[in-house]
Simulated assay, not measured.
Amino acid sequence: MYQASPQRYARMQYNRVGNSGLRLSAIGLGLWNNFGDYDDFATQRAMIRQAFDLGITYFDLANNYGPEPGSAERNFGRIFAEDLRPYRDELVIASKAGYKMWPGPYGDWGSRKSIIASADQSLQRTGLDYFDIFYSHRPDPNTAPEETAGALDQLVRSGKALYIGLSNYSGPQTAAMLAIFKQLHTPVVIHQPRYNLFNRQVETTLFPTLAKAQLGAVSFSSLSQGLLTDKYLKGIRADSRASKATIPFLSANQVAQTLTTVEKLNALARQRGQSLAQMALAWNLRQPVVATALIGASRPEQIVANVQALNHLDFTAAELAQIEQILAAQPQIDWDAR
C-alpha cells in the first residue's frame, strides 16, 4: 500500500494564488500527455506518486485529456482511489471543459448544458466528490459570457468545485468574465495561459489584467512541449513529441527553427548550474502572477529533475538581459502550424 513520503513538504515552494487564501505548489503536474489509455499505467502511477512525494500538490486535468478523451481522468481516478484517497485534503485537483469531448452539439464549447454535463462526467471518471478548481478551457464565441460564467458559478454553489479558473482567454475576454463573476460573487482565482520563453504574448495582453484583478496564473506548456529542454539538441528521436503528428504546438520544423536559440539558452543554463528545463521553469516563476509552472512527464526521473528548478529561482540582471538578447535573435514562428 502506498504511503507518501514524510518529507514531501520539506523543499517544495507553495505560492499564494492572487489575493485568495489558496496556495499551489510552484511546480504542478499536467496530465495532458502520457496519462491516456495508450500509455503504460504502471508508469503513470509511478509519476503521480513521485510528484506527490516531492510535494507537488497541484494535478491538472481536462475532460478531453488522453488519448482517448476522458482516459486521463479515468486513469487518474484509479490512482486516486488506490493510492491518494487518504491524502485528498492535501491535493488540489483541477479539470476543465470547453474543447471537443463527445459527439453532437453539447459536447463542446461553453454553454450551460455543456459545462454542467462535462463537470458531472469528469467527477464520475475521477471518482471525486468535487474539484478544487474547475476551468472554462476556452472562450465560446457563440455563447454569451454571462451563460458560461453562470454555469461555472453554479458548479461552486452546488458543491462540485471550490474555485473557478479560466484558460486560453485573452486579456479583454478575461476582464469581461471577471466583471460578471464579481456580480455573482464567484470565487474565480486563476488563469491558465500558455506561457514560456518562446510564447510571451500574455506578458502584455493578459498578465496586467490578472495583476489588476489580483488573480494568479498557472502556466501550461512551460517547456514548450519539450523544446526548452536539451532533448532535441542531438536530433529528433522517433519516439519524441516532435515526430508525432498528433501532438499540437510542436513539429520537426519548429525544432529546426529554434535549434540555435535553444543551444544558446542551454549554454546559459549550464553557466547557472542548471539544466535548460530547470532554467525555463525558474524563468516562468519569476513572474509575480505565476503561482505554478506546469510540467509534463513521461517518466518519474523527469519530475525529480524539474522540481530541482526550485533550487535556483533567482536571476541576475545580466542573465535576464542575456536571455532577452538570445530571444531577440529568434525568427518569428507560427506556433499553431504543423
Rank of each mutant, 00 (worst) to 15 (best):
Ser5Thr: 09
Pro6Lys: 10
Arg8Gln: 09
Ala10Gly: 13
Ala10Ile: 07
Arg16Met: 01
Ala26Cys: 07
Ile27Val: 00
Ile27Thr: 00
Leu29Gly: 01
Leu31Val: 05
Leu31His: 03
Asp40Tyr: 12
Thr43Asp: 10
Met47Gly: 05
Gln50Arg: 15
Asp53Arg: 11
Ala62Asp: 05
Gly66Tyr: 08
Glu68Ala: 11
Glu73Gly: 05
Phe80Asn: 02
Phe80Trp: 14
Phe80Ile: 02
Ala81Met: 14
Asp89Ala: 05
Tyr99Met: 12
Ser122Ala: 04
Leu123Asp: 05
Phe131Arg: 02
Ser136Lys: 00
His137Asn: 06
Asp140Pro: 13
Pro145Asn: 06
Glu147Met: 04
Gln154Ala: 10
Val156Tyr: 04
Leu162Cys: 11
Ile164Ser: 01
Ser167Met: 04
Ser170Gly: 04
Met177Glu: 04
Ile180Cys: 02
Gln183Tyr: 07
Gln183Thr: 03
Thr186Gly: 05
Leu197Trp: 11
Arg200Cys: 03
Glu203Arg: 15
Ala213Pro: 14
Leu215Cys: 03
Leu215Pro: 08
Ser219Gln: 09
Ser221Arg: 14
Leu227Phe: 02
Lys231Ala: 01
Leu233Lys: 05
Lys234Asp: 12
Gly235Cys: 06
Ile236Met: 07
Ala238Cys: 13
Phe249Pro: 11
Gln257Ala: 11
Thr258Cys: 13
Arg270Gly: 04
Arg286Phe: 08
Val289Tyr: 04
Ala293His: 10
Leu294Arg: 07
Gln308Phe: 12
Ala317Cys: 12
Leu320His: 09
Gln325Asn: 15
Leu327Val: 00
Ala329Thr: 06
